[in-house]
């Protein structure tokens, strides 16, 4: 039962990631691409956590935490750059 659920969930996340890539390529403006990238790192955290479930190991937890922190920081940095033209004033 758990294997089937993992397969279904991973397929759904993979489709979500391909939709994000579509929006990141097509996206007419810069905030659209930034939003797509923001969603993409959240989805990749889900994929990494499910890979840890699949392999029955806790090694990938740190990778997920690192991606969460760096993704948030980079989103804020690019937003700040678009908003003020500078990151650290």
């Amino acid at each position: 039962m758990l294997d089937t659920a993992l397969w279904i969930s991973q397929a759904l996340i993979l489709m979500a990631l391909s939709l994000n890539v579509y929006r990141m390529i097509v996206g007419p403006s810069m905030p659209d691409r930034l939003l797509a990238l923001d969603t993409m790192y959240v989805n990749s955290i889900a994929l990494i956590v499910m890979m840890g479930l699949w392999l029955n190991t806790k090694t990938y937890f740190e990778a997920a935490l690192l991606i969460a922190m760096l993704g948030f920081i980079s989103t804020v940095a690019v937003c700040k750059y678009l908003l003020r033209g500078d990151i650290i004033e």
């Binding site: 758990l2 659920a5 979500a16 939709l19 929006r23």
Partner: peptide, 20 residues
């Protein structure tokens, strides 16, 4: 656990579908 996993995947997919 299976229900939570499928619900999580479905919600993530719906969010990305809305964004696209």
């Amino acid at each position: 656990i299976s229900v939570l996993l499928i619900a999580g995947g479905a919600f993530a997919f719906i969010g990305s579908l809305g964004m696209a």
